[in-house]
Amino acid sequence: MAILKIENLVKNYGSFQAVNKVSFAVHSGEIFGLLGPNGAGKTSIISIITTVEKPTAGSITINDMKLNQHEKKAKSIIGVVPQEIITHGYFNVEEILNFHSGYYGLINNTVRINELMKKLELWDHRHKRVRQLSGGMKRRLMIAKALVHSPRLLLLDEPTAGVDVELRYSIWQLVKELKKMGVAILFTTHYLEEAEQLCDRVAIIDKGQIQKQGETTTLIQKLTSRHLTLILKNKIECSHPALINYQNNTLEFRVPYSKEMGKFLSELNLQRENILDMKIREGTLEEAFKYVLNQGEL
């Protein structure tokens, strides 16, 4: 079931078109990655879903409710982790979470708040103000705020930007747990290996337009190739069109996913005893991303 459905979304800032006819859907229990270079329009899309920005055209449906008609109800099921850290000058962690819970219509939500503070390792810092927290702690607080009302749709705008490896890993684990619980997650990130690991589907956006979207593995297979490296005992003559590099008895081939590896090897007519070693490297989302943005050769 689509929790978030965006159709023909357009956002203009004067003559600059930040978002151009963007359409996609995020389903329950799915992680959808929105990938693109800086200024591609990812944050504009998130800002429009959270109503921080108004769209120029297009429609947004959240859990079968049109956002512009049922704004309050629709927003009550969204959790947001914005890109920028929010400082909340006067209040401590516990107060901030209590307020945030209240904004979403929940009072005396102590059990959930305590659970989140413990899970996100904020418990020992609950009486500290935001400015007393480390960068990682601030990021954890932002995530706790987004989850305080158990949202059905979670918007994560670069949640791992500038965090250490340990925290990044724990955010990944949390995102996977939320997915298992049926939360629909819209995820933007600059780290493509992260998107590849986490996202069921991705959309690659550039200059406000979605260039490609689909299942992560399918997109990788469509847009990239496997790299086959053969290390030979004796040098041979090879002029196969898939050959991309040949140095010191090492041959490197680009093998499309459409071709079976066994068939490809037999095409090479190699003697088995001449092969010292063989490595296959799968295509990556980063390669697919570069391909889409540059429309270049892989």
Binding site: G102, H149, S150
Partner: peptide, 21 residues
Amino acid sequence: MNNVKKQELIWTPFLILLSRE
């Protein structure tokens, strides 16, 4: 995720923001 608690979206958000202020 199922909400254990039911959200009250008329008075609670208003009263909480007022108390914050």
